[in-house]
Design a protein around this nucleic acid. Structure first.
Lengths: 284, 284
DNA sequence: TAAGTTATGATATAAAATTACATTACCTAC
DNA sequence: GTAGGTAATGTAATTTTATATCATAACTTA
């Protein structure tokens, strides 16, 4: 846990003087990390050893070590003590909280992502005759995004967000086709069925989903990750971000595998898109 | 800039002994932040004042201050010196780089986001008779995602990724309708036109786009942000993440404005979705 | 190679943090 | 209500750490 959150959370467990220290730190953490123990002690109106004891109570080796930990928890901008959106949050605060929790989720996702699976997935994708991206609900947008990316690679790409179209497409799969299934839970019935159908027809099935989920067992290659649940608002938020970045990683792996000449091609695609834009100098 | 990157980048500008210090730090930054100046000097086989001079050369006040900065740059996990994907990156390294640069972009985006615009946008959205989300290319997926979210709010939502359908929809706009246009560059001709059409028909037009872009000038309310260019791979990556999180923020603001009873409703929507899933206990 | 410049290190000093111990405040049992 | 104990806090001494000063060494350039 974030050190600043820890200070906040332990507030009740501190002694009177230690609480004074905690309050001074919470009031202005940025000042705290740039102060000496003497300065901080004076600010909290306690003695220096008290500050030191306070630091040790938070499982640090001493004051300098505590400052280091605190500095790290402040690294990503505003020090919101909690990232959970509350009823009375201001626009300012819920905006920050959502951005911060999104970043934190990406960090968690990355740590749980198995890069050897990524590598294998890139292998499979580079050899694909066609690539299909299927997802439902929030994951449908992710599939849509993947289509947009891989389409630029000049590979035949399929993307449906309709259950029946997905199924029909999988029934017509052949050896050499690759199906990428996207599902946060890995429990969506129709996707699990589709995975089996595609596999039975000789297609390689990559699943961007949860570890040990039913879907992951039905895939040729599960690319699994752990993403904190989106509990706050009952809306899928963090999960699809992690999926999108995973798509980015696969796309990047793909282009790296294809070499530099291939990337010039991508550059050209981007150049062409510019024609649909108004000129930079033109302000309408 | 990240302090560790700075150390790497300044490597050529250091003197011989200072470079020794830099190398020791780059080799194991985690060790560095937990060492005293004496330990580090010994590791680099230089004198203590040299280490101190090294720190000052990097615009810090001294060794402790330098450690603080370094600690912050290590806060988010793996200390990749550069976040730019290179030809010979391993899957491990490009995965980390992409995740890290995604997180960094979100941070930049948040800092440039004007929360008062967010608040006004929420105002407008809560009063909308219908909400339309339009984007093209990569932004189409974002619009798609927004549709998925706002649909759960039981508000009439429209989403098209077809230029003509978008245009027709805007021609039929009325007072009380809200059109949300999503474009990273804010220079996509057809969206700029649509903005004007919708506005002329009395709709409120919210633009999730770049500050001072042609599109931003055509909107009733521009919600602008600054996102680092996606230069590495010629693929849109960071931009759409920032857009998605902005949608999350708007959706959250929306639900907060509607109060707690409304959120119970969202919970019910989520419950119903569970029926399309296989049971948790079932392992297929 | 001599003069000047810059880089580096040894030593001294100052600052900071920690330890050990003393004192105070607080609680409980009688 | 007070004696005895315990936990909290502070004072002062000690140790550790960082910085400033100055001397020396290495390197440049004429």
């Amino acid at each position: 846990m974030n050190t600043l959150e820890k200070v906040q959370k332990s507030l009740t467990q501190f002694s009177k003087s230690e609480r004074k220290v905690a309050e001074v730190i919470l009031a202005s953490p940025q000042t705290a990390i740039h102060s000496s123990i003497a300065t901080l002690a004076k600010m909290a109106d306690v003695s220096e050893p008290t500050v030191n004891r306070f630091c040790r109570r938070l499982d640090t080796k001493g004051f300098p070590d505590f400052k280091l930990h605190l500095a790290q928890s402040l690294a990503n901008g505003t020090p919101y003590v909690s990232r959970h959106v509350e009823e009375d949050d201001t626009p300012e605060s819920y905006t920050t909280k959502i951005f911060e929790s999104s970043m934190a989720s990406l960090d968690t996702a990355r740590q749980s992502l198995d890069t050897s699976a990524i590598n294998k997935a890139v292998d499979i994708l580079t050899q694909a005759k066609t690539i299909s991206f299927f997802g439902l609900g929030a994951s449908a947008s992710v599939a849509h995004d993947a289509q947009n990316k891989f389409f630029r690679f000049n590979v035949p790409v399929i993307c449906f967000d309709d259950v029946l179209m997905q199924r029909m497409s999988c029934i017509n799969c052949n050896e050499g086709d690759v199906v990428v299934l996207i599902s946060h839970t890995g429990r969506t019935k129709s996707l699990i069925e589709i995975a089996r159908i595609a596999r039975e027809n000789g297609a390689a099935v990559i699943g961007i989903t949860a570890r040990n989920s039913p879907l992951s067992y039905e895939c040729t290659l599960p690319v699994t990750m752990e993403v904190p649940e989106d509990t706050d608002m009952y809306l899928p938020m963090a999960s699809r971000l992690a999926q999108l970045v995973t798509i980015d990683v696969l796309a990047t792996g793909f282009t790296l595998r294809r070499g530099p000449r291939f990337r010039d091609n991508l550059k050209r695609v981007k150049e062409v898109l510019k024609e649909s834009r108004v000129n930079k100098d033109l302000t309408i």
